[in-house]
């Protein structure tokens, strides 16, 4: 891929990733007959949370897809995807803390400490902040191997995020289970590779 192609494809990916945000803003200000419906806060909350989770799972697909297709260049999209997942997570959190709770800190405290689905959601947000902060190339260089270790917390974040989705679902677990299955495949592939590598190393002739 040439530099121009890279640049162009990144702009295209940015446009795709920002689209859910533009759409939700258009629905919020009710243009072109769009709206968030009768329960706008809940709709905004759910849409942004789902978008963050969707992009997180796509981010986690990059490495296996790269190994499968042998297209190494896919890795250049991973940072942007990760940051967009974080962006939607922040919007999701703001919709909850500012619009839904009206910044009632005592309620926020009770929610975080007593409602398990909110506890795991907040934990996912907290764990994602260092990843966003250290996402720059400079940080990557400075942290060296530690960067890799740090960014492996994304696997834990994936599990927390899907758990958060599952635990807040009232009854119909079909969708959260589909998300769990996709996450299990993505993490399972990594685990299998790791076990395989260990096996190969152990049986290597001295």
């Amino acid at each position: 891929m040439t530099g121009v192609q890279r640049g162009f494809s990144k702009v295209a990916l940015f446009a795709v990733c920002i689209t859910p945000f533009i759409l939700v803003v258009m629905r919020a200000v009710e243009v072109m007959g769009m709206s968030l419906g009768p329960n706008p806060v809940t709709e905004l909350l759910h849409t942004m949370g789902k978008t963050s989770l969707n992009i997180l799972l796509i981010t986690l697909t990059i490495s296996p897809a790269r190994r499968l297709t042998k297209i190494n260049a896919l890795v250049i999209y991973r940072r942007m995807l990760g940051l967009f997942s974080f962006f939607y997570l922040v919007v999701h959190f703001c919709a909850y803390a500012v619009l839904d709770l009206g910044l009632a800190w005592s309620t926020l405290y009770v929610d975080i400490t007593q409602r398990p689905y909110i506890t795991v959601g907040m934990l996912a947000l907290a764990l994602m902040i260092p990843l966003a902060v250290t996402s720059t190339r400079g940080m990557q260089r400075r942290l060296k191997r530690k960067w890799l270790t740090l960014h492996r917390t994304v696997y834990a974040i994936g599990i927390l995020a899907v758990t958060h989705y599952m635990w807040q679902t009232k009854l119909d677990l079909l969708e959260p289970l589909i998300y769990s299955l996709i996450l299990a495949i993505l993490l399972g592939e990594r685990l299998a590779r790791r076990l395989h590598r260990r096996h190969v190393n152990a049986h290597r002739p001295a």
Binding site: A28, L36, P38, N39, P40, V41, T42, L44, L99, D100, G102, T107, V110, D111, R115, P116, Y117, W167, Q168
Partner: peptide
Amino acid sequence: PRWSQASERRLGSSLFSSR
């Protein structure tokens, strides 16, 4: 067990109206 029943959202209210 999973959420508060102390307040509610009235359908049809705006994005910025409180519970």
